[in-house]
Every structure is written in structure tokens, then in C-alpha cells.
Amino acid sequence: MKKPSDASSLATSRVRDLSDSSFSSTPLVDPGITVLRGDFSVSNIVEAAHFGTTFVARIRANPHVIVWERDPATYEHILFIFVTHGTMVFSSTGGYSTSPDGGICLIYPGAEDFTFESKTPTEVLTFSFDGRKLGILVSETTRSGQLRANSPTARVAYAYLSSLLKTSKEIQGGSDKPLREMTQHLARALVADTAPVSGSKEHLLERATATINNWATSPSFGVPSLASILGVSRRTLERVYAEVHETPGFAIRAARLKIARTMIASNPTARFESVAVASGFGSVDSLRRALKSSRISDEPRELL
């Protein structure tokens, strides 16, 4: 039997807003949190800071079990949890993981609900942000990656975030831009550090294909985004594709063309503007150019 949380107390907390020199009432603890066992509330937040959709908090709590029921507003959020004391168990429909002292839990974008369980007193440092707003694209292939707790990136991240919590109280209005940029760079570096190490070239191509199929409909998705998601340099990506006489740019364009053709075949009266946007080309001109340069010889002439 679930123990309903006090929505009013869990929904907001007075934390330091780095975009303003004064305190503000901010939705730090998601109202989708339900306490199943133990006590967990805003009072557990020792210190916190935020700007925009980026939140950093240090939390201390006695044994508890809580469920985070995600809603569309948090589907794109990425959450890092640095366990500094005690042991946390994190579980979802995709499985579970345990993070002891010095461990790190990573929750990627998605709609899955998560259960957090602590059987001993714990202290954690959390870092959450909206990946899309920072230009971070995460595919299903990236979700298999593991963040190494002893990696240089993880150690630097923990030190920086701890310092941010201490110094945020000294930030004056209008002077937070450097911190914003540093924190955004840190977020990107942490996500990149979770990317699985590339195995064979064939495996990299398989991952690239899966990623392209997931993101082809996004107009902003391109070769730089693909390389970033896969955790490799653009040069490495282009070299691997060259061995199969192709380019990553062509692979992305081919995926979009396939989507466009499917849309037109299923609805011959569809407007080209709608097809161009929905297939990821963004504009009719881009779609037409891609059709004309396509290697596929059976392209319907009326589409050109």
C-alpha cells in the first residue's frame, strides 16, 4: 500500500537560484515522488542550487523507499546520483543496480518509473538537467554505458558540483553566466563518459544505424550529434563508414528519405511541407535535393 506523499511539501523547496541573487520557490523535488516507506521530504535536502532546468542538491536521509513516477515534463531529464555515504538500490522495468559508497547511478531520458531504496542512512549528491535543452541526444545504444566512479570526469564533476553548492550563495545577480556554461560543459562530458567503448567496426556501424533510426526525424540531428552519441570522433566515424563506401551524412539522409517515401506512399495527398518536417529534412528544398541526388533509381518522377 502506497503512502501518499505530501504533494505541497515535496513539490517545492527554497533553494538558491543562480539566475537571481535572491531565494526562490522552486520545484526541486518532483511532485511525482511517492514515499513507500520511511521519511523523505524537502527537509532531507541539505543544500541545493538551480538555474533553468538544471538542479544540484545534496540530500541526507534515513532508510527509505520512494518511487519516482515520471511525467512528460521530465521524460527528457538526465539524472546523475553520486552516492557518498551508504548504499542505494535503484530499480525500474529495465532492471536494477546497486551503488555503494562512492558509486554513481545514472538515469537517462525515458518514461520508466524508478524506485530508490536505502536500507541505511545515506548521503547523495544529485545532478539533473534537461538533455534536449543542452543539445544532448541520448539513444537506446548509449543507455548501456557505464559511468566509472573513479574516472577523471566523475571525480572532477563531483568536486565541481560540491563547490557549486558552496559558492552559489555568493553569486550575485548577472554574474552566473560562466557557471552556467561550465555546468553545461560538465553535463555533456558526463554523458559522453557513459558511452560504451567501441568494439569492432561492425558493432560501431550497428550502433550508428540504430541511433540514426532513432533520431533521423529530428532536423537538428546530424553527423556531429551522431558522433557525440556514439562517443567517437567525427573523423573515426567517417573512416569507419568509408570502409563500406559510404558516409555518415549519406546514411542519415537515406534514413530520412525512407521515412519520407513511406509517408508519401501511405498518403499520396500529403503536403510536401509536412513530409519534409516530419521526416527530418526541415524544408521542402532539402527534401527535393535529397530525392534528386538519391542513388535509388526507382524514385517516383512525380516527387522530383
Rank of each mutant, 00 (worst) to 15 (best):
L161N: 03
A111Q: 12
V191C: 00
S97G: 14
E117D: 05
V156F: 15
S175E: 12
R180M: 09
R132P: 01
K169C: 02
P178V: 04
F90D: 10
R188S: 11
L125N: 02
E117H: 06
D101T: 12
D130C: 15
M182Y: 10
T93S: 10
A195D: 01
S139D: 05
I107W: 00
P178S: 08
R148Q: 12
Y158H: 14
T122M: 13
G173Q: 12
Q172H: 12
N150P: 00
V138I: 13
A157E: 03
G110Y: 09
A149T: 12
E123F: 07
R148S: 15
S175F: 13
K119I: 02
A149E: 05
G103I: 12
T194K: 05
D113R: 08
F114M: 08
V138T: 04
A192M: 04
Q146E: 15
T98E: 14
L190R: 11
L190Q: 11
Q184S: 10
Q146I: 14
T142P: 00
P109D: 05
P178R: 01
V138G: 01
G103V: 09
Y96N: 13
S91R: 15
I107K: 11
T122K: 04
G102T: 11
D130L: 14
T98S: 05
N150D: 14
F114D: 04
S92I: 03
E112R: 03
T126V: 11
R155H: 12
T87Q: 02
G145K: 01
Y108L: 12
G110P: 07
A154S: 15
G131E: 02
Q184V: 06
L165H: 01
D176R: 04
V197I: 09
L179F: 11
T122L: 09
T122G: 03
L137H: 05
Y108G: 08
P109Q: 04
R132F: 12
F129S: 07
T153C: 08
L125G: 01
G199I: 07
L179N: 03
D113C: 07
S139T: 03
A111F: 07
G102Y: 08
S163A: 14
Q184F: 03
F114L: 11
D130P: 08
R180F: 10
E112P: 00
E140R: 02
G135F: 00
L179K: 01
L147N: 08
R180Y: 12
K177V: 07
D130R: 15
K133A: 14
Y160D: 08
Y158T: 13
A111C: 04
S175M: 08
S118D: 03
T115Q: 15
D130T: 02
K166Q: 15
R148N: 13
Y96I: 08
G199N: 12
L106P: 00
E170Y: 13
S151H: 06
T194A: 10
T98G: 02
E117K: 06
V197P: 05
K169V: 03
S128N: 12
A157I: 13
S144F: 13
P100W: 06
A154P: 02
T194E: 02
Y96S: 15
P109H: 06
